[in-house]
Design a protein around this nucleic acid. Structure first.
Lengths: 245, 245
DNA sequence: GAGTGGTCTAGACCACGAG
DNA sequence: TCGTGGTCTAGACCACTCA
């Protein structure tokens, strides 16, 4: 069973992938496409929704539907990563940071393993690659551990990223725990990342604990699913693993 | 700006979370709900679509919209993991496996780093927890490395899971690379996992390479985003590895 | 067969963007 | 202002489930 909007989205997809419709181009208006395919506008819109969900089409209110440029896929490197990989990730990124001082409450107290009211510093980072946003991060650090040059509240931009700066300051860290989930974006996230709310995001909750068991950093990262992956590499020593049962 | 379907989905969500509508219950029909909220049926449906995307409502054709039972969240343990964690994951799972012999082609040759036509064994695993499916896995192994008792083609079920069996047979492995992405399910995946196609899935591509650089296993895992997370834990510095919980 | 959701239609009205 | 997409309406027809 092939629904009409599926047929249309398949057709448009091949037109895009074969280059018959070029990247950056604006599609005909929805009304025109609808009459071309002899379907109603809502049906045509549901076909476009499929392509938006795949990240192939960027729908802009009042302007039209645009074929997106082939995406620079962005890779989040999990774990300690290699410095090279981390640097490569941060290179060519323009990061906008908002620094806020707040006190722990709700979910944050559990995440940071602190009591309610503990002073924290929050960094809200929106990083761009070229024109398009490519990640939204909320990073929380105990206020005493926040780097002084970033500690004053306000807005600014860093080339290297707050993350790099924070990484330098970390004491001999002990454990990084990254919990990855897939979901649809909240309306706010969709707006901030300029993605359709039908496009899945990769949500990463990262908690870094030092040797004393203290939480040094907690980060909530949101990456658009159409252009971001997370990669985790584990090397096991040539050690004997017990048989499990 | 609050669209009408947002208002409705918010209202239904609070009714569900406060227990005013209980888990497992069937909602009134879409037509009835529409008249209750004095909106048209398509508008009400878009409100329900939001809740489906959040995994709160299970829409079944011909039967109705059901409030889902609070989900057992399932955790995929990345990396080598701990045997305990792996065992916990596998416990209480009913796994349906289809074994197929095939020859590498297309994307698989790159993934397995073999030449086209190399003999592989494919395991297609659909694991259930109770009644609901909770992961779909395509696992590829060079045919020579496939465990003999699993090697015959056909369908069967394992309590412990193919993964555990495969893990036992692995030689001193060298590197696990897991690439995680978020996307919407293909129609086939949505059907197999019995999820709405509006619900994001976590897609994990796992490649295990042994010390000689040979790919021992490649796995494509799909987990429903509403009930699955992936967790990766990295311990840095203290290079002691031997004993852990 | 009765009731449910799935898909689609044709068109109204509003909000946004560009000239 | 004009054309775009965003939301919503009211209703038709089909497919699935269950008694």
């Amino acid at each position: 069973m092939a629904s009409r909007h599926r047929v249309i989205s398949d057709d448009l997809r091949t037109q895009i992938s074969t280059g018959r419709i070029k990247a950056g181009e604006c599609l005909p208006s929805e009304a025109e496409l609808a009459s071309r395919y002899t379907v109603s506008v809502p049906t045509l819109r549901s076909a476009l929704a499929v392509l938006q969900g795949e990240g192939l089409v960027d729908k802009i209110h009042g302007r039209g539907n645009f074929v997106r440029h082939p995406l620079h896929r962005v890779t989040y490197v999990g774990g300690a990563g290699t410095p090279d990989a981390q640097a490569a990730t941060n290179a060519a990124l323009r990061v906008n940071v908002r620094t806020t001082h707040l006190r722990a409450r709700g979910h944050l107290t559990a995440l940071m393993r602190v009591s309610a009211g503990s002073p924290l510093t929050e960094y809200v980072c929106l990083s761009h690659e070229g024109k398009s946003p490519h990640s939204l991060a909320h990073i929380y650090v105990p206020r005493g551990l926040a780097p002084t040059e970033l500690r004053e509240a306000g807005e600014s931009s860093w080339a290297g990223g707050v993350e790099a700066r924070l990484a330098e300051l970390r004491p001999s860290l002990a454990e990084i725990r990254e919990q990855v989930s897939a979901r649809l974006p909240t309306p706010e996230e969709a707006t901030a990342l300029r993605i359709s709310s039908a496009l899945a995001v990769l949500a990463i909750e990262r908690v870094i604990v030092d040797v004393t068991g203290r939480v040094v950093e907690a980060a909530l990262l949101v990456l658009p699913g159409d252009r971001a992956d997370a990669v985790f590499t584990t090397r096991t020593m040539t050690e004997e693993k017990g048989t499990e049962g």
